[in-house]
């Protein structure tokens, strides 16, 4: 059986995904929303679900898409503000130098185990250095 056969997960393998608070898909009913049993924290994807979708994408021959889902799995537990700050830092002319990017990569790796995102940032640091992208824009 190929991982492709698990798709769509909600129909073919609903038991393989849970909400961030550990509830099964079937728990997301209108009654549960009304009773407060389910709230906004439940309406989010987990690293496990993203890694499952990455396996499906890879089995479907879409390797780069799978890698994106794996980076996404890295980012699930990274707070929104830190993601937005990292995005800002990767924009041209925001980081002073390569070290600032490398420090951010190290932080994400250390605090969140975000290995694949860290590698992406390190790769950026090298190219930005070669292309001179640490010039302030405003």
């Amino acid at each position: 059986m190929s991982d492709v056969d698990l798709y769509p997960v909600a129909e073919k393998a609903p038991e393989q995904v849970r909400t961030p608070t550990g509830k099964p898909l079937s728990a997301l009913t209108l009654e549960a929303v009304m009773s407060g049993e389910v709230d906004a924290r439940d309406v989010a994807i987990t690293p496990e679900a993203l890694l499952l979708q990455a396996r499906i994408a890879r089995a479907a021959g879409r390797v780069t898409l799978a890698e994106n889902f794996e980076r996404a799995a890295d980012l699930v537990r990274v707070p929104q503000d830190l993601i937005l700050d990292t995005y800002e830092l990767l924009r041209p002319g925001r980081a002073r130098d390569a070290q600032q990017l490398l420090d951010r990569a190290a932080q994400l790796r250390r605090d969140y185990g975000a290995e694949r995102v860290a590698a992406l940032i390190e790769e950026a640091a090298a190219v930005y250095t070669r292309r001179g992208l640490f010039v302030k824009r405003y």
Binding site: A10, T19, V43, I45, L50, Q53, I56, A57, A60, L65
Partner: peptide, 11 residues
């Protein structure tokens, strides 16, 4: 609910 399974993230 779709957000939890991530099925609509595929191509």
């Amino acid at each position: 609910r779709q957000r939890i399974s991530g099925d609509y993230l595929q191509t």
